[in-house]
């Protein structure tokens, strides 16, 4: 009897522990709306939903990519004005994010990007490729990526589910199959080959050819990586009905390959 009581009390405690986060979650969501703007900002910072990330990313992106173009001597005067207004919009948007999300997005994203584009157009002489600093451009690209990520929609995390009790007598789960021998070296060779193509493409100097080389290198890298992974895993698999054999489609592919190789050798011999 006393065991039953203890069990019931422990179940009640367990349910209470489960219900606590459920009660706390709506309270946490409603709390910032009931207070003033400063208190709301402090609550958001404490809750981890700080607009500080967005503010920092906005400022860094503006400082590295917009300010040098709009505030330079060669830029027109309206460019500086538009750039500063754009910065104000970019910094003001995140502050309304929790209270008025739609307005915050219009100001912080739409208006900021529109004014930034305007500043770039007005300060276009400063954006000549010869005047671009690669380091600043890299930092700017990362900052714009951070800006995009900082405006992401945050997921509401619910209370974590309790883990199912483990059965001590249950046997360990074994993998149904293992990788064939040599799978990892084959996949590694495929990935390394893909990286080599990308490096080789950067050594192409000619402008038009470089663009084609980049596209070809990316396509080849993707193809070789995918097929290497497939070859690494599929080797050694046997059909339940028959052993592996050369199908007509495989024979056709091999025949095409042989024809092209022979044709290439013939052309080389004829040129000599």
């Amino acid at each position: 009897m006393s065991d039953d009581r203890e069990q019931r009390s422990s179940e009640t405690d367990h349910e209470g522990a489960l219900a606590e986060p459920l009660k706390a979650a709506p309270a946490r969501a409603l709390a910032p709306q009931a207070e003033g703007p400063v208190a709301r900002l402090v609550a958001e910072i404490r809750a981890g939903d700080s607009p500080g990330q967005t503010l920092l990313a906005t400022f860094v992106a503006w400082a590295t990519t917009v300010a040098p173009a709009a505030l330079s001597r060669s830029a027109a005067r309206p460019a500086a004005f538009v750039a500063v207004v754009g910065l104000l919009a970019g910094l003001a948007g995140p502050l309304f994010r929790s209270s008025r999300p739609t307005l915050a997005r219009h100001v912080g994203i739409t208006a900021f990007l529109a004014l930034t584009t305007g500043a770039w157009l007005l300060g276009s002489p400063a954006l000549a490729p010869a005047r671009l600093d690669p380091l600043r451009a890299s930092v700017g690209a990362i900052a714009w990526g951070a800006f995009a990520l900082s405006w992401r929609e945050r997921w509401e995390t619910g209370p974590s589910k309790p883990e199912a009790p483990r059965d001590p007598d249950a046997p360990l789960l074994q993998a149904r199959s293992t990788l064939p021998r040599g799978a990892i070296p084959i996949a590694t060779v495929g990935i390394l080959a893909g990286l080599v193509y990308l490096v080789l493409a950067w050594h192409v100097r000619d402008g038009d050819r470089a663009l084609a080389a980049q596209a070809v290198a990316v396509a080849c890298a993707v193809a070789i990586s995918a097929v290497a992974a497939m070859v690494a895993v599929d080797r050694g698999k046997r059909s339940s009905r028959s052993s592996r054999r050369v199908t007509p489609a495989a024979g056709k592919s091999l025949l095409m390959l042989v024809v092209f190789v022979v044709a290439g050798v013939a052309v080389v011999l004829m040129r000599r």
């Binding site: 339940s240 050369v246 495989a250 592919s253």
Partner: peptide
Amino acid sequence: ASTELLRPRGGG
């Protein structure tokens, strides 16, 4: 050809 040898289309 490498793909067709290991994973033939329509084959088991």
